[in-house]
Structures are given as C-alpha cells and as structure tokens.
Nucleic acid binder design. Structure first.
Ligand code: SF4
Ligand code: SF4
Lengths: 152, 152
DNA sequence: CTCCTTAAAGAGTTTTTTGTCCAAATTATA
DNA sequence: TATAATTTGGACAAAAAACTCTTTAAGGAG
C-alpha cells in the first residue's frame, strides 16, 4: 500500500521546492524542518536526485537545491523510477518474478486494472501541478500544523 | 506498489491450502516447497495465522495446517489486516499521520479513488475464489514452472 | 511405551532500510 | 584573504524486515 520512506521524502521535498521561487536555491535544512524529516537523511536523497538530473545543487553561501531547468514538468513516475528502482512498474502484488498475462497469479485479473490506474496516475501528476495544489492552501505536505505557508 | 514479503507468502500459502482437500492437513514443508519459499520463515507466518484464527494446526503424524471451518470465505483484507497491521487501510501514500479530506496531501484528490478501489478489491476477493482460479490451471501461485498441479 | 513425525516457541543471524556523524570541498561576502 | 555557510562523501549506527537454528511439546503408529 505504501511507498518507501525514501520515496515519500523525495516527493515531499520536490513538491516543496517546486512551490518556491524558481532559481532561488532552497536549503536542505529548511526543507527538512518544513517537512519534519531527518535532515542528514534528506540530504542523501536530494544528492541522489541531483545525480540523476532532477535537481541542481549549489554549495556555500546562497547555496541549496533548485529544480533543474524544465524539471517542473517531471512526473511522479520519473521520481519513483529513481527512488523505488527501475522495475517499479514491473514487480507486483504477489512478488512473482515473471509477470505477464500468460504467467499470471490469481490476483491478476483484478489487480492489473488497478495497477494500470496507479501507473497512469503517477505518469500524469507533475511537480508543477502538485506545487500549485499546495499553494492553494487546501493541501498539506507534512503532518505539522502548517507552521508557515511557503514564503517567497 | 508492493506488499511485504510476509503478506505475499501468507496470501500464497492460504490460497494454496484452499486449493487442497478441506480437512486434510497440509504440511508446512510441502507448502514451502510448492511456493519456493523459506520453510522456517513460512512456519512463523502460518503460526501467526493460526493464532489469529484463520488456520487450524495439528502436530505429529498426519499433522499440518488446515483452513479453519468457514475461513474459505475469508477476504484478502482480513489477511492483510493481520500481516500488514491494523492500520493497513489508513496509512497512505505520502506517509502523513493524519489523513482526512480536511488534512489532505496534494495527491489526495487523485489517490483516494484508487486507494478505495484497492480496499474494495481486497474486501471482495476470498480465498475460495482465488483457489478456484488457481484450480482452473490458468493462474499460478509461484514462479517455478508449475512442478505439480495441486494434487487431491 | 517407544519411536517418528510434525508444529510451537524462542533466540539468534543476516540483510535492507533508515538514519547519524564528521571531515572535506566549495562558494559568497566582508 | 579569512570566515561563515553550505553541499559532498564516506563511514558508521540503529531499527526493521527477512530468514535460520535449536529445542521442546504433541500426536499417531507400531
Ligand atoms: S497481478 Fe498480474 S502483474 Fe501482478 S503479480 Fe499477479 S500476475 Fe504479476
Ligand atoms: S492521498 Fe489522502 S489519504 Fe493518502 S496520504 Fe494523501 S491525504 Fe492521506
């Protein structure tokens, strides 16, 4: 039913960054605080997202993380393929190695449509869209009583 | 996207048992072999299912595990509430502690219908149904080239 | 009663995931 | 140039999940 903590943190952080003014680096520390997430762990995750081209990072004063040019249009699927692994869409509910309509487990008939819906959904949701949703104030990114709405 | 290994093994084992003649105990060893799953680990899982009333167990000669009377009608949801924990249906995609329409994360609008579909599906599928599907020969429970179809 | 077979119980191990710490590299700015 | 702020990288630690081993209890058959 769930994504790994790593994926959850990655998505939360990316959406948060997407809510901020583009081009202005966001501090790892600030993201961690806002999301109420361990900062050192989050840093590792963000570094990984950098390495795979979703983020740009800047060191030193005025440093931080920015969405790389054009990456506002990234989908959740692009993120999950990084954080959950490239066979995220393959491996499936009963854990069978081979999954096809021919070598199907007994859940297949019921599960496959749902799975396809999940995949379509992840392919459809962009960071930009999700950030907009957050900026309406109707949705929250973290558990804490919204300490501060995203400043800009 | 996934269930825990424990849940996968539990579901596989229960369906397998449901395909066997009722009242005749099935050996842990046989289930493990058929599913290609670690026997000692599976034993723990089956013991747990016993403790929670889904299975009956018998020791000694002619021992093994049987579905408890009436439990052919058990749903996957009943199993998952045991193996994934009682808040299986609560905790959700971004990991927020509180989840409601009022305190919703930005995925909520898209995710909730899918989540409800999953829950409905799990509530709807019974061991009996799944066992029948397996017995048609069209579906498989494990990866191995079906060594032997369920004997009875 | 004795032997064999099986599950039960519990402790222990291994692997994976999650999280921490610290020293180095980089950069703006005073 | 010195300083403070920041990411980077690597090693490490803790927790959780997956898996194993060993011993005991129970039950059936000779
Ligand atoms: S539902 Fe289909 S895709 Fe999923 S494990 Fe079963 S056979 Fe594979
Ligand atoms: S989608 Fe809805 S239920 Fe799921 S985490 Fe977001 S708010 Fe909670």
């Amino acid at each position: 039913m769930v994504l790994s903590r790593t994926s959850q943190y990655a998505i939360q952080a990316l959406i948060y960054i997407a809510t901020q003014a583009p081009g202005v680096p966001v501090l790892n520390r600030d993201i961690a605080e806002r999301l109420n997430v361990p900062a050192a762990y989050l840093a590792k995750i963000l570094q990984n997202l950098c390495k795979h081209g979703l983020l740009d990072s800047f060191r030193g004063r005025l440093g931080g993380f920015c969405l790389r040019e054009g990456m506002h249009k990234s989908t959740l699927m692009q993120v999950l393929l990084l954080t959950e692994g490239p066979d995220f869409t393959q491996n499936c509910i009963l854990g069978l190695k081979r999954c096809s309509d021919e070598t199907a487990c007994p859940l297949h008939l019921r599960w496959k449509p749902v799975k396809n819906k999940i995949i379509a959904m992840m392919n459809d949701m962009t960071l930009e869209d999700l950030a907009k949703a957050v900026l309406t104030g109707k949705y929250r990114l973290a558990d804490l009583p919204v300490a501060a709405m995203p400043a800009r």
